[in-house]
């Protein structure tokens, strides 16, 4: 069952066309890794999937909602689509626990007790139960990102979007975050991951999309894409990063 369908997606910022013509279909439980050079449009593509960026042209259907239509209730769609950011974007004035319980309580109107119980389960999952009452500023980068993942999971999303989740981390913190993501993938979460972690893409990805210049240049299962890239652009990119 396809859960995301993208048809001829175009996105411009003023005169600058960042996404030129993107079409793809993502299946439920699929893990899609998006790689490519800076400025290739991969983050913009991801941000179009929960409409943090307005869609200039084309059709994007997420979890049965046509989100490229202006009449869709985008808040309803976003409840089912979690997002994790490069800069974590935890709420600094709230504790770890409050960061996680806020959306379930305000959006889903879950009771405080139920939201807390779920938050502790998720903190166990990411290995940070003892940090529940800390503030984000008291955490390391890797801990912040794991809390951010728990915060997104608290809404029980059907899809998780990751926007370079490990790019702002010290190298020794990367592993903990990737482990949490691997676990999620194993549990059958549908994931779209913009990443520079080729090892993760190869190991966890069901499919890798290589983007450049606003197009998907090539997509394939990881072994094929990494071992036998078809396009010159893919070959030259991989020769630099691998």
């Amino acid at each position: 069952m396809s859960i995301i369908q993208v048809r001829h997606l175009k996105k411009s910022f003023g005169n600058l066309e960042v996404l030129k013509d993107i079409s793809t279909v993502i299946q439920e439980t699929e893990v899609v890794c998006v790689i490519g050079p800076s400025g290739s449009g991969k983050s913009t593509f991801l941000r179009c999937l929960n409409r943090l960026e307005d869609i200039t042209d084309g059709e994007v259907i997420v979890n049965g909602h046509i989100i490229s239509s202006s009449t869709v209730n985008i808040n309803k769609v976003r409840e089912e689509v979690g997002m994790v950011f490069q800069q974590f974007n935890l709420f600094p004035h709230k504790t770890v626990l409050e960061n996680i319980t806020l959306a379930p309580m305000k959006v889903r109107l879950t009771t405080k007790d139920a939201a807390k119980k779920r938050a502790y389960e998720l903190l166990d999952k990411v290995g940070l139960r003892e940090k529940a009452d800390s503030y984000p500023a008291q955490l390391s980068g890797g801990q912040k990102q794991r809390v951010a993942i728990a915060r997104a999971l608290a809404m029980d999303p059907k899809i998780m979007l990751f926007d370079e989740p490990t790019s702002a981390l010290d190298p020794e913190m990367v592993g903990d975050v990737l482990d949490v993501m691997k676990q999620l993938a194993k549990e059958g979460m549908t994931m779209v991951v913009v990443t520079h972690e080729m090892g993760f893409a190869r190991e966890v990805g069901d499919r890798v999309m290589f983007m450049d210049g606003g197009y998907v240049v090539e997509e394939n299962v990881p072994e094929e894409l990494f071992s036998h890239p078809q396009h010159v652009r893919t070959q030259s990119f991989l020769s630099k990063v691998l």
Binding site: N75, G82, M83, N89, L90, F91, V107
Partner: peptide, 9 residues
């Protein structure tokens, strides 16, 4: 962005 991505209005 983080708040909106969680479904908050």
């Amino acid at each position: 962005e983080a708040a909106r991505s969680l479904g908050l209005t």
